[in-house]
């Protein structure tokens, strides 16, 4: 694939990360199941983290710039916290409404 498109590793990674973010945004906007939306958010997070690594490849120097990796690790931790809260809330939503369909949940209110 990389050979056909004639891309460098860095460009391929950037392209992948853009695709991942687009797929995640598409999932968040179009899916109606809460669990799928949470997975969509997680896909966006993966894409963003991949972009950090891709950006570090473009830096020229005697050694790889470790900042991107440090930032990625911190942001993975933050995403973990976000997804933990999201899944906990999804669980509460399911216990309360007995459904994960966002349209149903909206209809139940008022």
């Amino acid at each position: 694939m990389i050979d056909i498109l004639n891309l460098s590793i860095g460009e391929a990674l950037v392209l992948t990360s853009v695709l991942l973010v687009a797929i995640g945004l598409f999932a968040v906007v179009t899916r109606r199941n809460l669990l799928r939306i949470v997975i969509g958010i997680e896909i966006i997070a993966t894409g963003v983290n991949l972009n950090f690594i891709a950006m570090s490849i473009f830096k020229h120097g005697p050694y790889i710039d470790p900042t991107a990796h440090a930032l990625t690790i911190i942001s993975i931790v933050l995403d973990g916290a976000l997804v933990g809260v999201a899944l906990a809330l999804t669980l509460v939503v399911y216990r309360k409404f007995r459904t994960l369909d966002t349209d149903e949940i909206r209809r139940l209110r008022w």
Partner: peptide, 30 residues
């Protein structure tokens, strides 16, 4: 009922928002 549903909505929108900020940060870094 209401706080759970509102909290979920808030989390989804705001979570995507902070990830977009993070994407901008990664581009700035690059």
């Amino acid at each position: 009922d209401e706080p759970v549903e509102a909290g979920m909505k808030y989390l989804i929108m705001s979570g995507v928002g902070s990830l977009l900020v993070l994407y901008a940060i990664s581009l700035t870094y690059g």
